[in-house]
């Protein structure tokens, strides 16, 4: 069984936020109204997290990192779900079952990275957005919790294609949208257990770290950064 994981090379990242936009469009993540955004109800599966912010423009010292669901190996969110709306797949992806979710938001309260988002309202989307909905991904109703699932619909498609071509799934067949669009090629994705994959090479890097390592959640999204 593969174990999917991701590595983000912060030394390559240019903070262009192409991944944030791609994620939002790929997964039909709702664009919330201005009023909702003003009270902190914005919805992103992938977002830029400001870790450090010092000084005034132009002498500014900024440290921002792209943040998505870390697909923990020992996730705390699924333990508290009362209805099996979130579970760990055998390939390590923490999936969401939207029709099961009762909207109690316990998983949100127990995620140490606060990556889950709740559909507080279902606002009218701009016409252009409605036109380019991704048909592979459901549009979530109001009242349920959602999060990044490593573009799991792409895995299904890649598997089907590989099957049609009578071959095994190869490294690079299945990549999430954020990796695909990254202009700096800062994101690596693949099977962490496969010694021939690029991501296997990347996690051997000495610059590797994860967020909140001491919690023991064992995230499967790694960052690379030379300490400055």
């Amino acid at each position: 069984m593969p174990k999917y994981g991701m590595v983000i090379d912060l030394d390559k990242c240019t903070l262009c936020e192409a991944c944030v936009t791609a994620c939002k469009l790929e997964n039909n993540v709702q664009i919330v109204s201005k009023e909702d955004a003003a009270i902190g109800r914005t919805m992103f599966w992938m977002t830029m997290l400001t870790l450090e912010h010092e000084g005034q423009y132009p002498d500014i010292k900024l440290k921002r990192i792209p943040r998505l669901c870390f697909q923990c190996d020992k996730p705390s969110c699924i333990k508290t779900c009362p209805v099996r709306a979130t579970y760990k797949r055998e390939d390590g992806i923490i999936a969401q079952i939207y029709p099961n979710c009762i909207g109690c938001r316990y998983c949100m309260a127990n995620c140490p990275y606060t990556v889950k988002v709740f559909n507080w309202d279902r606002d009218k989307q701009p016409q252009q957005v409605e036109k380019c909905y991704n048909e592979d991904v459901s549009v979530r109703p109001k009242g349920i919790v959602e999060k990044c699932v490593f573009c799991i619909h792409r895995l299904q498609k890649a598997e089907e294609r590989a099957k049609a071509e009578y071959r095994e799934l190869r490294d690079g067949d299945y990549v999430p949208a954020c990796m695909e669009v990254c202009p700096a090629k800062a994101i690596y994705f693949g099977d962490l257990d496969d010694p021939h994959s690029k991501v296997f090479e990347a996690i051997k890097d000495y610059r590797r770290f994860t967020l909140q390592e001491d919690l023991g959640t064992i995230p499967k999204v790694y960052y690379l950064n030379a300490k400055d």
Binding site: K79, T80, P82, V83, G103, Y106, N119, G143, I144
Partner: peptide, 26 residues
């Protein structure tokens, strides 16, 4: 009160149908 707090109270019966006894809510 937890019922008031639910995003989808129409799915309340899921608690009985597919409840997980590992969750402190149960």
């Amino acid at each position: 009160h937890p019922l008031l707090d639910m995003g989808r109270p129409d799915r309340m019966l899921h608690l009985f149908e597919r409840g997980r006894l590992q969750s402190p809510l149960l």
